[in-house]
Simulated assay, not measured.
Amino acid sequence: MRWPMRLVRGLFGVLLALIILFEEWGWVPLQRALAWVGRLPGLRWLEGRIQTLPPYAALVLFLAPTLLLLPVKLLALWAIGQGQVVLGTLIILGAKVVGTAIVARLFTLTRPALLQLAWFAHWHARWISWKEALLAQVRVSWPWRFGRMMKTRLRRAWQRTRARWKLD
């Protein structure tokens, strides 16, 4: 009974690592994109109001995208059930990207208020510690190092190609 549990825990760990890596990869660029959108006059005012929310109002606002995207994800599952696997998958992926962008921006705006809640600050610190330990393990893994090496080689090849095109 031990090896099946190890297998399940290992698969769960890999799945969780992939989710965390997506969040890690997507969080900063998506948050920056929404910050750029947030510079528009009406949205700038809205972001200013969000930053002044008290802690529990900030918590409700921070959790709202999760609840608001639930019907979209249910629609995607319905589409998959109707045989529209590609459409359903695209809806789920789109909801994940949009949801991550919104949550990243909202977290940036509400973080000071959220960290005023003792229980949130406690669990946030534990989450960050756990996530950093997991990312440290992933970053020393062979697939991660290989991917970084390939990314560096592709970037250099692209830079050389662009440099050649500019000289002609």
Rank of each mutant, 00 (worst) to 15 (best):
K73P: 00
T89I: 03
L16G: 04
L43Q: 06
Q82F: 01
L53S: 06
A133R: 15
Q159N: 09
R44L: 11
E24R: 14
L70E: 11
R9Y: 12
G94P: 06
W158P: 07
K131A: 02
H122Q: 13
R164C: 04
I80Q: 12
R156A: 12
L67T: 02
P41V: 00
E24K: 14
E23D: 07
V72K: 07
G10A: 12
T100L: 13
Q159C: 00
W119E: 11
W127N: 08
R145I: 06
S141R: 07
P71D: 04
K131H: 12
A136D: 09
K131E: 11
A101R: 11
E132G: 00
R162I: 06
W119I: 12
V138D: 01
G88M: 04
P55C: 00
L53D: 04
S141M: 06
E23N: 08
L34S: 07
I19G: 11
T110G: 05
W119M: 09
W165T: 01
G26W: 08
L135R: 02
L7R: 06
A33H: 10
L16D: 07
L106Y: 09
Q84S: 06
L46I: 12
P41E: 02
L134D: 01
Q82P: 08
V86E: 03
R2G: 12
P71S: 08
R39M: 09
I92Y: 00
P112G: 05
A76M: 05
A125D: 13
R156W: 13
